[in-house]
Design a binder for these strands. Sequence first.
DNA 1: GTAAATTTTTAGTCTTGTCTAAAAAAATAG
DNA 2: CTATTTTTTTAGACAAGACTAAAAATTTAC
Lengths: 224, 224
Amino acid sequence: MASLSQSEENYLKEIFHLTQLQKEKVSTNSLASRLNTKASSITDMLQKLAEKQLVQYIKYKGCSLTENGEKIAVQIIRKHRLWETFLVNKLNFGWDEVHEVAEELEHIDSVKLVDSLDQFLNYPKFDPHGDPIPDKNGKIPYRKTKMKLVDAGIHKKLEIVRVNEDEMGLLKYLERQNLQLGTKLEIIEKFSFDDSMLVRTELDTTINLSKKVTENISVKIVEN
Amino acid sequence: MASLSQSEENYLKEIFHLTQLQKEKVSTNSLASRLNTKASSITDMLQKLAEKQLVQYIKYKGCSLTENGEKIAVQIIRKHRLWETFLVNKLNFGWDEVHEVAEELEHIDSVKLVDSLDQFLNYPKFDPHGDPIPDKNGKIPYRKTKMKLVDAGIHKKLEIVRVNEDEMGLLKYLERQNLQLGTKLEIIEKFSFDDSMLVRTELDTTINLSKKVTENISVKIVEN
DNA sequence: GTAAATTTTTAGTCTTGTCTAAAAAAATAG
DNA sequence: CTATTTTTTTAGACAAGACTAAAAATTTAC
């Protein structure tokens, strides 16, 4: 399997992410905005990736990953999330500092390196943002009980299990508010006029969170 | 300081290495053979690097690094050697398995990453091959008492302090012979007809080492 | 269901880093 | 010291990946 350029890898990864979100064929424009390129560049690359049998692509109709393309995308995501875990757990990076560096590290090409790192980190199942880390075979851990905070019910005991690292600034914001993975909280009140909500955390501080925030945090219900 | 491409970084690194070896201006051809490119490509790149004030270059006369170019080269070498140390000490790579991967890792661009790694590894002074690791400020540890094995005297107690990782196959060969960093040995006899030598190791095995080998191993005299 | 707006593709250009072939400079040999 | 050999540079080409502008297809609006 001839190795891919960083660019090609980034395209595969983004197609994968976008497919997760919308479950349909991925449009040229959506890729362009995620990858910060022009639509024409996307078209060029899609044609190339289609030739390599990594994506299915029909002119004007968007694209999706082939089995092989998806396999590769998942391995890149594995690398990304393992490196993020390494940076946070071993090198004491903040969770808002890891993304950029992991974007570089994910392209390092060595199966032995990735698997050794996985072992060194003790086969973590979730990265510092709560995203699942695919295993060596591409299997992605599934967290059964998980919902977006925005959709959670009032007065239930909740625990933060994931935050969306893609939302620029969200991580820093949460850091400031002292909200992190594992933080327990309860929705006190939901305000329908702006879809914000008032939550109370373990430490008995209450915070008002905007829709933008609660859409990008996932929680599970704590049984106790 | 605009960041450099991997290619540019590799050129700087090789110019640095070659300058260490010969102390003169580095020729186009010598660079070409180290970098596995054609001389014409070297010329192109040298002109580019000269414009960026990273090398001094006079047509037909070879090149050398400017102060700034050298600073950058040293930081790349720092990264390379720290990563090698990480791979061997933390991920249990063999010393013959690290070079390729470190060639990729050395181009990851994050000062915070490198410094954190340095701290995580406990500020190592030498990498798994015995090469000195420049510190954050570019200062390179100096090993006072060091000579090539080929130049060492007979019947002295010696200890291996460095092996040349650039010599393809040497590391694997030494692995086989059970010779590693820290191995103590003594030269029993030198053969002038082929410049090989007979050495006895701690374990009382005697091995004949060719000139090619003894030129690429450095030792210090053990006081005891 | 056609016109306007939007999305996507094509065509052509640019930069980076490489190459080959040919020309020019430097080094070497007698 | 001149002729030959070697080294280095120039000139021109190419592939990757991006861009702009224009054309084509699709979608939306009325």
